[in-house]
Computed example of a mutant assay.
Amino acid sequence: MRKCIRCGSEMKEDCAIKVEGAGYGIVLSSDEKKLFGGRMGKPKVAICPECGEVSIYMEDVEKLKD
Rank of each mutant, 00 (worst) to 15 (best):
V54N: 03
A16D: 15
G37V: 06
M58K: 10
D66F: 15
L64H: 11
C4M: 11
K65H: 00
K33E: 14
G38S: 08
K33G: 07
E32Q: 14
E32L: 12
M11G: 10
E20K: 13
G37I: 05
G21W: 07
V45S: 05
D66E: 14
D14H: 03
K33N: 14
A16V: 15
L28G: 06
M58Y: 05
G23P: 00
K63Y: 15
G52V: 04
S55D: 10
G21V: 03
C15R: 12
I56W: 05
S30T: 11
M1L: 12
K34L: 10
Y24I: 12
V19N: 04
R6C: 03
E32A: 15
E13M: 07
K18W: 12
K42Y: 00
I47Q: 04
A22G: 09
L64A: 09
I56P: 01
V61L: 05
I17T: 13
M58W: 07
K65M: 13
S30R: 14
D60S: 08
K34N: 13
Y57P: 05
D31Y: 04
K33D: 09
L28F: 05
G23F: 08
M58H: 04
V54L: 07
E13A: 08
V19P: 04
V61C: 09
M40Y: 06
R39E: 14
E62S: 15
V19Q: 06
R39M: 10
K42H: 01
Y57Q: 00
R6S: 11
